[in-house]
Design a protein around this nucleic acid. Structure first.
Lengths: 129, 129
DNA sequence: TCAGATAGGGATAAATTTATCCCATATTTG
DNA sequence: CAAATATGGGATAAATTTATCCCTATCTGA
């Protein structure tokens, strides 16, 4: 992994949840595992934008943080299944609320996000006329 | 800022909320502004681990995403106040839920996070004996 | 008059996270 | 036999985010 040089803060609840949930694909992994997509290859297909590598890395972290459990079946070709722990399941309502907020405000969010992205690229070209 | 080279995904609610909420201090900024700490210097004091620079950057993004509003008073020395927009206020219950989850599981989270950090640094030294 | 408070941002370095590429194993299918 | 499926991780490059340093401006109080 990577040994941090800047110490982590664990002062408040937001620090703590941030530590286990930051990571580009972690929330989706938890969500899809909860929906029953338990095998790495299934998760990979559900999240095609992520590389296999990074999904493995983030799955490992979720496991280290005891949000999911990994079962390796001793067969060939290999078979692996992830499941949410009881602890991990307590996050599902929260993830649901996050996704719902995003869906509820989809129009507005797409607008402001796009606007901002355009403003940045316009800024880069502002000296060209 | 930084013009992205990898395109942003805006496919689902989780993508959307991620776009506006990712950033090391954004959630805390929203929370403290909601608690009444509206001036940049107050926010800086509430979040001493963040540099002034990065707080400004993240405040700018929150403003661009219309989660907060900025009022500049034409006085000297300068005075600025941020407020949540109605849109921004809809995030408060969600942020509250995130923080509560972290607080509710504080013990366990501190344990697994610390364990993982130690495992990483141990791995780094595993060839030294 | 110098220190400190207030606010903002450019330039650049450092830290951290993701992406890419490649290799390994063994079975099943065409 | 070649190709596909399944899973995992080392090595390294690239992308992205944060941190540091420094400069600007004005007012207030010691």
């Amino acid at each position: 992994m990577y040994e941090r040089k800047i110490p982590v803060n664990l002062n408040c609840g937001l620090d703590l949840i941030g530590e286990v949930l930051y990571g580009k694909w972690k929330i989706r992994l938890l969500w899809f595992i909860n929906e029953g997509f338990q095998r790495p290859s299934e998760l990979q297909r559900k999240i095609p934008d992520a590389s296999r590598r990074i999904l493995n890395m983030q799955l490992n972290e979720l496991e280290a943080h005891e949000l999911i459990t990994k079962v390796i079946y001793p067969v060939l070709p290999p078979k692996v299944e992830y499941s949410l722990t009881e602890f991990g399941k307590t996050l599902i309502p929260i993830i649901g609320a996050l996704g719902k907020w995003g869906d509820d405000h989809e129009e507005h969010l797409k607008e402001v996000i796009t606007k901002r992205i355009n403003a940045i690229s316009a800024g880069k070209n502002s000296t060209i006329h």
